[in-house]
Simulated scan of single mutants.
Amino acid sequence: MTPLWLGGVSGAHAGIALATGLAGLANAWLLWRALRRDGGFVLAPGWGRHLLRIGVAALVMTGVVLMSAHAIGDWRAWSGMARWGWLLAVVAAGAGAYGLALMACGWRPRELRGL
């Protein structure tokens, strides 16, 4: 974060989250590579379809959140309670869109029980 801050980058505080996310991705990739090499990781049938559903639902959720944020406009113009209310509404809309998209792709809640 410090090089970004010293460089005058707007939103330099997001560098911490960026670094954490990149470290997590690197760690997951290294773990996957080691497990794959040692034969400890084999995808079961149906995982490709499952990951595709999650990807589609994530794209739908992203679209809903971005459209909602664009429709609301500048968050800084709102008072504290209005910001909380709109933030809650955007998060709820994103979560709802994610769930509906999963169900539209064929996912059913009973899959959480391992059936």
Rank of each mutant, 00 (worst) to 15 (best):
A34Q: 07
A77C: 01
V65A: 09
S10G: 08
A57E: 00
S10C: 08
G73H: 13
G106R: 11
A58N: 11
G39H: 02
W29K: 01
A82F: 04
G11I: 12
H13P: 03
S68G: 15
R76W: 04
W75A: 15
L88V: 15
W47Y: 02
G39C: 12
G99F: 06
A77D: 10
I16A: 09
H70G: 13
R33T: 11
Y98R: 00
A95W: 09
G48A: 02
V64E: 03
P109F: 13
A97W: 03
T62L: 14
A23C: 08
H13K: 06
W29T: 03
M67P: 01
M1S: 05
L18H: 03
H70C: 09
W32R: 12
H50A: 09
W78F: 14
L112F: 14
L25R: 07
A93S: 11
L52H: 04
L30R: 11
Y98F: 15
G96V: 01
H13I: 10
G63D: 02
P45F: 06
A93W: 08
D38G: 09
D38M: 10
L88E: 12
L100T: 05
I16Y: 04
A34D: 12
T2P: 10
A71N: 11
W107H: 08
L31H: 04
G8W: 14
L52E: 01
G24K: 02
A12Q: 08
R36F: 05
A92L: 11
P109D: 13
R108A: 14
L59M: 07
L100W: 09
L66R: 13
I54A: 07
L100E: 08
M81W: 09
M103N: 12
A26I: 04
G73M: 13
M1N: 03
G24I: 03
A57T: 00
M67K: 03
D38Y: 04
A34T: 12
I54R: 06
A82H: 13
R76V: 05
A58F: 07
V65Y: 02
A89F: 15
T2C: 06
A23F: 06
L35T: 02
V60P: 00
V42A: 11
G8C: 12
T62Q: 13
H50C: 03
G80P: 06
D38N: 15
R83T: 12
L87Q: 13
A57V: 00
R53Y: 07
D38R: 13
D38E: 15
D74I: 03
A57P: 00
A92I: 09
P45V: 05
E111Q: 15
G39Y: 01
W78D: 06
H50T: 04
A101W: 01
G24F: 02
G40P: 02
A19T: 12
G96K: 03
A92M: 10
T62H: 07
A95H: 03
A57W: 00
M1Q: 05
G96N: 05
G24L: 05
T20I: 10
L88W: 12
A14K: 08
P45A: 12
L35Y: 04
R33Y: 04
R37L: 13
G99K: 01
Y98E: 00
R108G: 10
I54T: 10
G80M: 08
D74G: 05
L88C: 12
L31W: 04
G39W: 00
V64G: 05
A57M: 00
W5I: 12
L52K: 06
G24N: 02
